[in-house]
Amino acid sequence: MTTPLDVIAPRVLYCHCAYAAVVPKATKEAVLRGLTDAGVAFDAVPDLCELSARRDPVLGDLTGDGPTKLVACYPRAVKWLFHAAGVELSQNIEVLNMRTDTPDAILADVLGTPRPLVEVTA
């Protein structure tokens, strides 16, 4: 059941960026630990880049149903990684950037009060 005014608790998709050191290890670990400690439902993938390169259909499965907060890296990179995999991100996907934002800020956004949907911005 949803609440009025399109305020829907979004799904959370977390990218572990496993195969490169571009996302600070401490940030990744703190965000993942925050999600598991909070006891929320979420999806996690080892590495969006790898999934994109092999056009893994899991990318479409995990972003196809309603609003999603996607915890990964730069929104422009995420948008075109999905495009390269044959999946167009819908307008109700919000990308949070572990390369620039702090774990506290990301977790506050993800675990905070549901809010009106926002667009993916490049």
């Binding site: 496993a18 439902a41 979420f42 999806d43 996690a44 080892p46 899991v58």
Partner: peptide, 10 residues
């Protein structure tokens, strides 16, 4: 995740 699996916490 370290072993390369996609995971969903339900």
């Amino acid at each position: 995740l370290a072993k390369g699996y996609a995971v969903t916490v339900v």
